[in-house]
């Protein structure tokens, strides 16, 4: 009898909580859909720049499944490679084929090499010697080295998001927020106080994760540690402001958890952990609204390609913009708790 009573009560609670119900059924569909887009999209054609190649070789590459663009000289092609619009440059130097790979993403490197192999097989035995070199990274750049910078950003983001969300929610559910707002504190001060208090811990956390990954795990690192720390801090700041903002729309810790598949998981897919070239182009544009995309882009740029401040400043401004927007929305959301 007791078990039945309990079961009935739980079912009733569930049915009344429409959001939990929706999460239970819709969130897995969302995640599955995203994975479908990521893994079952169009086949990826590597972009290969050709400099002073015989037309026959270019045609063979096209046949093997590459997008070949012809450049007048190797220098021009190399510039395109640096700008990120090519995956590799193939040229003939002193009679032997020379392949320069962009190098940041091991899976793309592999893709290029496979296509090239295919093309050379059809060419027959008279294929010239192949020289492979890397613009960034090196031959033994592992997948982890490539994912690493993204993972650093992701974990900082994820845990700060959870922590901030639950902490701000608890402030509300335990009644201390109401008590707090019965003092002459301004709403901006509440948000600012949270930013400052949590900011200290996020700073420490961001530093710890980055330093551990680079020095303890020996992750490939070609840029400035200070820029890595700056980016990680900005990313956690965004997580902090987003977490506290969303907690205004949750009434229990459980509802905070529900934001994970809705807010955090989609960002993982768009963060660069997965190659988005296979995704429908208009879906790819979704990444522009994902804070993690900017953080991951900059982290990869710094750690693998050794980019400096000038290269990542757009990412910095966008993340700052996100943080400021979320913080201001939070100030407005607090109006729900106090009229003034």
């Amino acid at each position: 009898m007791r078990i039945r009573a309990l079961a009935v009560r739980i079912i009733r609670q569930f049915v009344r909580d429409k959001r939990t119900l929706a999460l239970l059924f819709l969130a897995p569909l969302l995640v599955l859909t995203l994975m479908n887009f990521v893994f079952n999209g169009q086949t990826v054609k590597p972009d290969i720049g050709a400099a002073s190649l015989p037309a026959a070789v270019e045609a063979k590459l096209e046949q093997a499944g590459a997008d070949v663009t012809t450049y007048p000289s190797k220098n021009v092609a190399d510039q395109q490679l640096k700008a990120g619009s090519l995956d590799a440059v193939l040229s003939i130097e002193a009679g032997s084929l020379s392949l320069l790979l962009e190098g940041s993403d091991p899976s793309v490197n592999k893709n290029v090499l496979v296509v090239l192999q295919k093309a050379m097989q059809t060419e027959g035995m008279n294929a010239p010697q192949l020289q492979v070199s890397y613009l960034h990274g090196q031959e033994d750049l592992s997948s982890f080295d490539s994912f690493g910078p993204v993972l650093i950003g992701f974990f900082s983001f994820f845990f700060v998001f959870m922590l901030a969300g639950v902490a701000f929610l608890r402030e509300r559910t335990t009644g201390t927020l109401e008590r707090l707002l019965a003092t002459p504190i301004r709403r901006t001060e509440v948000v600012g106080g949270y930013l400052a208090g949590f900011g200290l811990f996020t700073l420490l956390q961001a530093a710890l994760i980055a330093v551990y990954a680079i020095y303890a795990l020996g992750m490939y690192m070609d840029g400035s540690i200070w820029l890595v720390l700056l980016m990680n801090l900005l990313l956690t700041l965004t997580a902090l402001t987003l977490g506290t903002l969303l907690s205004s729309f949750a009434t229990t810790e459980f509802q905070i958890i529900q934001f994970i598949p809705l807010v955090v998981v989609p960002q993982v897919f768009f963060s660069g952990l997965f190659n988005l070239d296979a995704m429908n182009p208009w879906l790819q544009k979704l990444s522009y609204i994902m804070p993690l995309y900017y953080g991951a882009d900059a982290m990869r740029g710094i750690m693998i390609r050794g980019e400096g401040f000038a290269d990542i400043q757009l990412d910095i401004y966008v993340l700052l913009g996100f943080s400021i927007t979320f913080a201001l929305l939070n100030v407005i959301a607090l109006k729900k708790q106090r009229a003034i």
């Binding site: 109401e178 707090l180 019965a182």
Partner: peptide
């Protein structure tokens, strides 16, 4: 409601905050 007036009274809520 006026923010500066929140300085003028002491408040004790129903729940121990």
């Amino acid at each position: 409601p006026k923010l500066s007036m929140l300085q003028r009274f002491g408040y004790m809520a129903q729940a121990d905050a």
